[in-house]
């Protein structure tokens, strides 16, 4: 069980990285709108050229 003396500090470092990543995301405004992004993925057109869709068919 002595492995926890190594594995737990590693997990804590990972948590630290996660906190840093979250803070970075908050700072860059990614949490300012919590609703739209969740639903935009449902629509199948994350292709920016979509407005010219008619030309493609």
């Amino acid at each position: 069980m002595n492995v926890i003396f190594i594995s737990i500090p590693i997990s804590l470092i990972l948590v630290g990285v996660a906190v840093w990543a979250f803070f970075w995301a908050v700072r860059s405004g990614q949490y300012d709108d919590l609703d739209s992004p969740a639903y935009t993925v449902l629509s199948d057109d994350d292709d920016k050229k979509r407005p010219r869709k008619k030309d493609n068919r």
Binding site: S11, L12, V15, A18, V19, F22, F23, V26, R27, Y31, D32
Partner: peptide, 20 residues
């Protein structure tokens, strides 16, 4: 905006800390 971001940061710290 500042208030919301600060609240969000605290929420994240509390959430991750709670899980651990």
């Amino acid at each position: 905006n500042r208030e919301r971001r600060s609240a969000m940061r605290r929420l994240i710290v509390a959430g991750l800390g709670m899980m651990q």
